[in-house]
Amino acid sequence: MALDTQEPNRAVLVLSLGGTIAMTTPSGEAGGVTPRLTAADLVAAVPGLKGEATLEVEDFRQMPGAWLTVDDIAALADRLNKQAATGTAGFVITQGTDTLEETAFLLDLLYRGDAPVVLTGAMRNPEMAGADGPANLLSAIRTAASPAFRNLGILVVFADEIHAARHVRKIHSTSTSAFSSPGAGPIGHVIEGRPRPHFSLPRRPTVALPFTRQARVEVIHTTLGSDGILLQGLDERLDGLVIAAFGAGHVPATWVERLEELAARIPVVLTSRTGAGSVLSSTYAFRGSESDLLARGLINGGSLDPYKARLLLLAHLSTGADLTVITNAFEIRR
């Protein structure tokens, strides 16, 4: 569905996946909100759009962010790759914030085009005072239409901040400033309606679609005094595992032998549960330290948080990649 605006050379496709930004209560009913608004509804609620771009709208999914799957995002990436080849200037994706940081990173692994792809959403639904969806959507459209943000991969625009998918995290459950990029900061801001880049990041290698197999990868978090019972039998149920370790990549001593056994059977990636910073490689040498675990066959996840590391591992496993390819993929991103 096309919306008649000016400057047809700046064509932006807005795809809606649902989420809080699209949630309302059924007419005449009480209770909580659910995804009901279409992409056209969302665009129609934004003041100041006239002249920004020629907008196309599409309802790709209509569900809470927590319901989205890897297959949904792979299908979306395929849609973006095909549409980017037609010359569309940019893309905006609206979705729930529960999984936005993960869908952004997975799309960054799968999207091959140069046109900006910008994800956004809302923390306050349209029925709440101070709903932030329209402002976020306007800033996202302006960023997607800007040539300055081409070939930067997937971006997240929220509260007038522009974040790179590889760094962005949801850091608050309810705040309208819920997204941040720990250790990096936003790569740009929208100031007086103009998206302004501060710095750029080189694109990383993508993972080729289609996925050829189903793969299961989970995250296990270290906790004080854990005996590692959750590690039992995982090699029979999983294709890969991510460990969200203490600090710079440390686990309880009771985990060590079981992790070594798992790493001999499936890829096991070592990450930090802290939310910022990198797993080390050779600073500590005690049993269960980063150097000990890496020597036992675990893969260094570098500065990727556990959730992004899971998606990188899952994407490669889904294409049938072997251990060498997977290890190199993490080495590139360190």
Rank of each mutant, 00 (worst) to 15 (best):
Q6C: 12
Q6I: 14
N9F: 10
N9S: 15
R10I: 09
L13N: 11
L13V: 01
S16Q: 08
L17K: 06
L17E: 01
T20S: 07
T24P: 03
P26A: 06
E29D: 09
G31W: 05
G31M: 04
G32C: 03
V33E: 10
T34K: 12
T34W: 00
R36D: 00
T38C: 11
A39M: 06
A44Y: 05
A45Y: 00
V46S: 08
V46I: 05
V46R: 05
G48D: 07
K50H: 15
E52K: 10
E52Y: 04
V57Y: 06
E58T: 11
R61N: 01
M63N: 02
G65T: 00
T69I: 08
T69N: 10
A75I: 02
V92P: 01
I93Y: 05
T94D: 05
T97R: 02
L106M: 08
R112F: 12
R112E: 15
T120L: 00
A122V: 07
P126A: 04
M128F: 10
A129I: 12
A129M: 10
A131W: 14
P134R: 08
S139W: 05
F149V: 06
R150P: 09
L152A: 12
G153V: 14
A159T: 09
A159N: 11
H163L: 08
H167N: 13
V168P: 01
K170R: 05
I171W: 04
I171H: 00
T174P: 02
S177A: 13
S177T: 15
F179A: 02
F179C: 03
S180D: 06
S180L: 00
S181Y: 04
P186H: 05
G188I: 11
G188K: 07
H189K: 13
R196A: 15
H198C: 11
F199C: 07
R204V: 15
L209E: 02
F211L: 07
R216S: 14
V219P: 01
S226D: 14
D227Y: 12
L234A: 10
D235E: 15
L238R: 09
V242T: 00
F246I: 10
G247N: 11
H250S: 13
H250W: 14
E257M: 12
E260A: 14
A264E: 11
I266M: 08
I266E: 04
L270G: 07
T271L: 08
T271H: 00
G277P: 09
S278N: 12
V279N: 06
L280N: 13
A285D: 14
F286V: 14
L293E: 07
G301K: 01
G302I: 03
Y307K: 08
K308Y: 02
A321M: 06
L323G: 09
N328G: 08
A329D: 08
E331W: 12
I332M: 12
R334Q: 12
R334F: 02
